[in-house]
């Protein structure tokens, strides 16, 4: 009994430590937003690494995911003769959930993990200390550019991913069950709304923010050499995934009701 209590207690403690650490990092970042200052070279490097390098894998997974969605639903579509619903079904689920979640998780595995490993290695090889001795603030110089790049790029990649997933679904709908691209797009454009797209994109922005915060936090607090870096990467991927699902549950109804409120007011 004591052992169980002890375990529960210590996991609560370590969870609060992590949350506290994230809050501290967020505070440090917020302080440095006034006035905002970004190192041009470092920001450019981050954008390139985070965005350009992730595009091929995002495009490939999106295409295949879209395709598999068409393949999976083809039996039902044929059975019910619901050819005119495929575009809507694919569009609705891809833009609202599958796109942002899938690309968010991939992003955390690729970019987030890489970021933790890179910052962690810089920490254990004293490169972060070297920056500090050169009177350079590591948060402004290293963390801010990564933050901006991750948020902006996850949003862009989600838009790109949505598009390619739809293209994948469209191609396979045509090949498998003869739903022509015209029928597909017509159903998509008639029956999905701007909000379906916006929900996904706004969530992607928050996912990017969460992945950036988590991966920088775990990277900066690495101790203990290569083993420590490995552990941090592991923690980063797990915590990012939890963060993504948590935010997904929290944000989807929030954004929808905000949109509905706006609609009633101005629409």
């Amino acid at each position: 009994m004591n052992g169980v209590l002890h375990r529960v207690g210590s996991s609560i403690l370590s969870l609060s430590r992590e949350v506290g650490g994230l809050a501290v990092l967020l505070g440090q970042i917020t302080v440095r937003l006034f006035p905002p200052h970004l190192d041009g070279k470092e920001t450019w490097r981050s954008f390139y690494k985070v965005g350009v390098k992730s595009t091929p894998i995002v495009v490939t997974t999106a295409l295949l995911t879209g395709a598999i969605m068409a393949v999976q639903s083809s039996a039902f579509i044929e059975e019910w003769g619901a050819y005119g619903l495929l575009g809507w079904g694919a569009g609705f689920s891809i833009m609202r959930e599958v796109g942002p979640i899938l690309i968010g998780l991939m992003f955390s595995g690729r970019v987030g993990a890489n970021n933790t490993a890179e910052l962690g290695t810089m920490k254990v090889t004293e490169q972060i200390d070297a920056l500090r001795t050169l009177a350079i603030d590591p948060i402004s110089y290293l963390i801010m550019p990564r933050f901006v790049a991750m948020i902006v790029m996850l949003v862009l990649l989600t838009v790109i991913g949505d598009l390619f997933a739809l293209v994948g679904a469209m191609i396979f709908a045509d090949l498998m069950i003869d739903v022509s691209p015209q029928v597909f797009w017509h159903s998509l454009l008639e029956m999905t709304y701007l909000i379906d797209f916006l929900v996904g994109v706004i969530k992607a922005g928050f996912f990017g923010f969460a992945i950036a915060l988590v991966s920088c936090h775990y990277g900066l607090k690495v101790t203990g050499g290569a083993v420590g870096v490995g552990r941090a990467v592991n923690n980063c991927v797990v915590a990012s995934a939890i963060g993504i699902f948590f935010l997904d549950y929290l944000l989807t109804p929030l954004i929808d009701s905000a949109w509905a409120a706006l609609f009633i007011r101005y629409g």
């Binding site: 490169q127 070297a130 500090r132």
Partner: peptide
């Protein structure tokens, strides 16, 4: 940390483990 920046301009440090920027 931010106040320390001004002090650090006065100090140059050579690290035992090099600490060169590998990027």
């Amino acid at each position: 940390e931010i106040e320390l920046t001004r002090v650090r301009f006065k100090i140059g440090m050579l690290f035992q483990n090099y600490a060169l920027f590998d990027f």
